[in-house]
Simulated assay, not measured.
Amino acid sequence: MPLRTAPPATLSAFQPATPAPAIEPVAPHRPRLATVVRRVGLSLLIACVIPAALFYGVFAVAGVWTAIVVALAWSYGAIGWRALTGRRTSGLLLLTALLLTVRTGIAMLTDSTWLYFLQPVITDGVVSTLFLLSLVSARPMVARLAGDFYPMDHELALRPRIQRLFRNLTVLWALLGLAKATMTLWLLQSTSMSTFILVKSISALTINMVAAAATIALAAYVARQEGLLGHAPAAL
Rank of each mutant, 00 (worst) to 15 (best):
I68M: 13
N168I: 13
A181S: 09
Y150W: 08
A220M: 01
W74D: 09
A157Y: 01
H29P: 05
P2R: 02
Q15M: 06
M183F: 15
P2H: 03
C48L: 14
R144D: 09
A52F: 10
M183L: 14
L175A: 06
S137Q: 05
A232W: 13
V142S: 09
T113H: 10
D124M: 07
T184G: 03
C48Q: 05
V210G: 04
F149T: 06
L130C: 09
T182L: 11
A217S: 07
R32K: 15
A52P: 07
A214M: 14
T170P: 13
A234S: 07
L118V: 12
S12A: 14
A235R: 11
L205H: 03
W186S: 05
T96W: 08
L109W: 02
T5E: 10
S43P: 01
T195Y: 08
R161K: 12
T110Y: 08
A20F: 00
V37G: 05
G177K: 05
G230E: 02
A67D: 05
T170Q: 02
A13I: 05
V70D: 08
V210R: 01
L165H: 04
P25T: 05
F196T: 07
I79F: 11
A211E: 04
F166L: 01
A52Q: 11
M1E: 15
R139I: 02
P31G: 08
A219E: 04
K200C: 12
A27T: 15
F117K: 03
G80D: 04
P28T: 00
I202P: 02
Q163L: 10
H29F: 15
Y116P: 01
L228K: 04
T89E: 09
Y56C: 14
R87C: 10
R103N: 13
S203I: 07
W186V: 14
L236H: 04
I216M: 07
R4N: 06
T123C: 03
K180I: 14
I79W: 10
M1Y: 14
I207K: 03
F196R: 08
M209E: 06
N208M: 14
E226M: 06
N208D: 13
S194C: 00
F14C: 08
Q163R: 14
I46M: 11
M183H: 09
L100V: 01
G177T: 10
L188D: 00
L145N: 02
T129F: 09
V40H: 03
V199L: 10
P28I: 00
A47W: 12
S137Y: 01
S203F: 09
T5D: 11
R167H: 10
L218Q: 13
A234L: 11
S128M: 05
T129K: 00
F55V: 05
M1N: 15
Y116R: 06
F14N: 08
A22F: 06
S134R: 00
R161D: 11
A214N: 03
L118C: 10
W173G: 04
G63D: 11
M1K: 14
S201Y: 01
K180C: 12
L130F: 08
L158H: 15
A60Q: 12
F117G: 05
L11H: 03
T215H: 04
G177S: 06
W186K: 07
L115Q: 13
M108R: 14
L135C: 11
W74G: 13
L94Q: 12
V61Y: 04
G91E: 04
R159N: 12
P19W: 08
